Simulated scan of single mutants.
Amino acid sequence: MSEQENHDVALHAQLRLFCRLMLGSADAADCVIRQIHRRALDDHDEHPSERARLFRIAADLCGVRR
């Protein structure tokens, strides 16, 4: 597995854990993960990193207030 693939797997696991903790359900977290990836395709906001952008989307979908 390449370094990029390892990074992607780790980021996916972190996002899933965040969503599971925020929503209290593994099934709900899996659903939100799919929505995150769909939104990320359409999201063109400028963020310092892909991680920051994906976690912002995750927080929005999980109802975390800023």
Score class of each variant (00 low, 15 high):
L11A: 01
H44T: 14
C19I: 02
L11F: 02
M22I: 00
A13D: 13
H44M: 02
R39T: 06
E5W: 01
R38P: 03
L61A: 06
V32R: 05
C62A: 11
H37N: 12
R16F: 13
A52M: 08
E5M: 06
N6Q: 14
R16T: 12
I36V: 15
Q4P: 13
I57A: 04
D45V: 06
R51M: 06
C19H: 00
Q14M: 04
H44G: 09
A40T: 00
R53A: 15
E3Q: 12
L17D: 14
M22G: 06
R39H: 13
R20Q: 15
A26P: 11
D42G: 10
R16N: 10
A10N: 13
P48L: 00
L23T: 11
S25G: 09
R53K: 15
D43Y: 07
A40M: 05
Q14E: 14
G24Y: 07
D45R: 13
V32H: 03
E46N: 09
L15G: 04
M22L: 08
L23H: 01
L61V: 11
H7Q: 10
I36T: 00
R20W: 05
G63S: 05
L41W: 00
D60H: 11
A26C: 03
P48E: 07
D8N: 15
D30C: 07
R34N: 12
H47Y: 15
M22W: 01
G63P: 14
R20N: 09
E50A: 12
A52W: 00
C62F: 03
I33F: 04
V64Y: 10
E3S: 14
A40D: 11
H37T: 05
A59H: 03
R38Q: 14
R66I: 07
A59P: 01
R34V: 13
A58D: 10
L54Q: 06
G63C: 10
P48M: 00
A28D: 12
